[in-house]
Amino acid sequence: MTMRDAIAAFVHDGDTVAIEGFTHLIPTAAGHEIIRQGRRNLTVVRMTADIVVDQMLAGGCVARLVSSFVGNSSAGSLGELRRRIEHALPEPLEFEEYSHYGMVCRYLAGAQRLPFYPLRSYAGSDLVAVNDGIRTVTSPYPGPDGRQERIHVVPPVNPDVTIVHAQRADRAGNTQIWGLTGVQAEAVFAARRAVVVVEEVVDDEVVRSDPNRTVIPAHAVDAVVACPRGAHPSFAQGYYDRDNAFYRAWSHISKDPERLREWMERWVHGTRNHAEYVALLGEEHWAGLAVGEALSLPVDYGRRL
């Protein structure tokens, strides 16, 4: 599908939308299309709420954020997010916070259709006091000392739609990722619908020749969108590098509401699609993000004679 058609079909006002990708392969272009289509009152689930979340907030799309980290990826702050949480400007943001592993467990519970998921790492944490989604239960099994332990649990998350970015997929949706991976597979299986955005759609034979790179299988995917350079300013291993200058600039852009509004008008509302965004950046900019070749050695999977 095109990005426009995929977002129109699978993202609706009031939905819970998971947007995943850890440092690498962040589906920024999908976030921009959600803004262009004027979606409202979304609950956004993203472990590492970063620039794309700040932009979706500035676009008026997000009413509630569920996350385990907020920040501009070691390059500064998120101005729009801070204004909403710290000062309720221009309106408040409902924020539900977990640890990274707490979010992983929520996706695992959602993917496995479990009622909750146990974890030990909240012992002594202040998060328990500020998030009533973190509960304690009594283990039905006695421990080595004969006592039944009390342990923290988190609820499942089952998004209406999960959106992830990846390097490549075939037309059926068998999706391959290499380099940094996060919880893309778990987030996809937890969701009712899934949109996979890729740098390129490849022939079936390419995927079959290297099956172990298939992180997300076709039966879990509802739409495949080809969107080259769609993870910018994050990177896609083997395709383009991280745009560190953009990350550094974003703190200054988002700190000033007027400057942020002007940026959104030019780069998101002023472009019809991601191809226009890419063209607006210019080939010289992309040349600076080019990566060299680092081939993986071939593997002999073997076959019957």
Rank of each mutant, 00 (worst) to 15 (best):
D256Y: 09
E293V: 15
I134K: 04
R147P: 01
A166Y: 03
A191S: 15
L289K: 13
Q148I: 06
Y122N: 09
G21D: 02
R4I: 05
H285S: 09
W267D: 13
E186S: 06
R147C: 07
V17T: 03
A231F: 11
G79H: 12
P211W: 08
L78Y: 11
V198T: 14
A88K: 05
L119V: 06
P118D: 10
G143W: 10
R120C: 06
A245H: 14
R168M: 07
D203S: 09
E262M: 05
E94F: 01
A75S: 15
L119M: 14
R261L: 11
P90F: 12
F235I: 04
V44D: 02
E283A: 11
V53Y: 01
P115Y: 11
G71C: 12
C61R: 09
F95I: 01
G292C: 08
V45R: 00
L114V: 06
Y247R: 10
V196T: 02
L114D: 06
E283Y: 04
G14I: 00
E265D: 14
M103G: 01
Y277L: 10
Q184V: 03
H269Q: 12
G79F: 05
V154T: 12
Y98C: 01
D132Q: 12
K255M: 10
V62M: 00
E80S: 10
A287K: 13
E265M: 10
T175V: 01
V17E: 01
T16M: 04
P257F: 06
T214Y: 02
F22P: 00
S139F: 07
I134T: 07
R266Y: 04
P257D: 08
V137F: 08
M3W: 06
Y107T: 00
G21M: 02
A88I: 04
Y101P: 00
Q167Y: 07
V291H: 13
V291G: 08
V188S: 01
F69R: 14
A187M: 00
D126P: 08
H269V: 03
R36H: 10
S77T: 13
E205R: 12
P233K: 07
A9D: 06
D132L: 07
P228H: 11
D54H: 04
L108R: 02
G59F: 13
Q237C: 08
S296E: 11
V188D: 02
T162A: 13
Y301D: 13
A129G: 11
R4K: 12
I177V: 14
G102N: 05
G14P: 05
Y301M: 07
E200A: 15
E205K: 09
A279F: 11
S74I: 06
R213D: 09
H24C: 11
D160V: 03
H232I: 10
L295S: 12
V278H: 11
G38S: 09
N158V: 08
A111H: 03
R40Y: 06
T181D: 02
G133D: 11
F95L: 08
V130W: 01
F246C: 15
F246G: 05
D256F: 06
G21E: 00
H232K: 05
D300P: 05
E258S: 08
I216F: 02
P144Q: 09
R120A: 14
A123L: 14
L108W: 01
